[in-house]
Design a protein around this nucleic acid. Structure first.
Lengths: 132, 132
DNA sequence: ATGGGGCTTCCCCCTGCTGGAAGGTCAAGA
DNA sequence: TCTTGACCTTCCAGCAGGGGGAAGCCCCAT
C-alpha cells in the first residue's frame, strides 16, 4: 500500500506520516522502487496516533501509548497513568486560559470602544500610566 | 542603560529583548562600545509587552497594541477590537480543551488501572478493536 | 511518447523564544 | 598593571509538530 492510500484510510496526511517515520513512530518497509510500503497494521497505528493527537497527547505520550497498544502484556495502570498526567496538563492550561479570559473580559467590558483615545485596556498594560 | 538593567526593570529577559529588537518591536540606540543603549521609555514598552504576552496576545497583536499605545490619537475602539478577537481565540481554545478533558476523564474513569491489559483508553484510541 | 498523478528527498517556514559558543568590554581588587 | 569575573556582542542550533514547495523519479493510460 502506498502512502496516499494509507493517508486516506487513516486520516493522517502524507507529510505527517513521513514525519512520524522520521521520528521513529512507524517503520514501513520499502518497495523496490523506493516507495514506502504500508500494511493494514500501519493504518491502525496511524489512526491510533491521529486520535491520540486529537486528544492532545504529545508525540512522546503517543510513543508510549503506541508501545502499550502493541504490548499484549501491558497493565492498564500504565495507560491510565499517562492519561491522568495528560489530564492534569489540560486542566492547567484551562486554568491559565480562564484566568486570561477573566482579566481580558473585565478590561473589554470597561473599554468604551469609541473614538476617544482613553482605554482601560492600554492603561492596564502600562503600569507606569497608573501614576499619571 | 544596558540590557541587564532594562531586563531587571521590565521583567523581560535579555534574550527576549534582543529578539524583540530583531523583529522590530523596539529600537534601542547603540553606545560607542556597541552595547544597546536603552532609556526609560524602552522599559515601559517592554513591561507593556511582557503584560500583553502574559495575557496571551500574539507577537503580531503586541505589535498592533504597542502602536496604539504610542498613538495619542488612537481610538479605544481599535484596542477593543484586538482584545475582543483575542478573547474569542481564548474561548475557542478553552472549548477545545474542555472537549478533550471530557473525553479523557470519561476514559480514565472507565479504566480499571490495574495489572490487566484490558483498557478502555487503548480501545477508544483503536477504532479497529471495537469489532473484536 | 506524452501527460498527469503519485512518490521520493531536501530544505525552509511557522511561533516565541532559549541555550550555548566565541569573542569584546569594563570596573574592581591584588 | 594585570587579572578576574561579570557584562555585553553576534551567530548558530534547537524545541513541537508539522506545512509548503522545489527538483526529480515512477508508473499507468492514452
Amino acid at each position: 500500500m502506498n502512502i496516499g492510500d494509507v493517508a486516506r484510510q487513516s486520516g493522517v496526511p502524507p507529510k505527517t506520516i513521513r514525519y512520524y517515520e522520521d521520528i521513529g513512530l512507524i517503520r514501513p518497509k520499502r518497495a523496490e522502487n523506493g516507495y514506502r510500503d504500508f500494511n493494514q497494521s500501519h493504518v491502525h497505528k496511524l489512526a491510533f496516533l491521529g486520535r491520540a493527537r486529537a486528544l492532545g497527547f504529545t508525540i512522546e505520550d503517543c510513543r508510549t501509548l503506541l508501545a502499550l497498544y502493541e504490548d499484549e502484556n501491558r497493565e492498564s495502570l500504565q495507560v491510565k497513568a499517562v492519561a491522568e498526567e495528560h489530564l492534569r496538563q489540560i486542566e492547567e492550561k484551562i486554568e491559565k486560559l480562564r484566568s486570561m479570559k477573566a482579566t481580558l473580559s473585565e478590561l473589554v467590558d470597561k473599554c468604551a470602544g469609541d473614538h476617544r483615545p482613553d482605554c482601560p485596556i492600554i492603561a492596564d498594560l502600562s503600569p507606569e500610566l497608573s501614576y499619571k
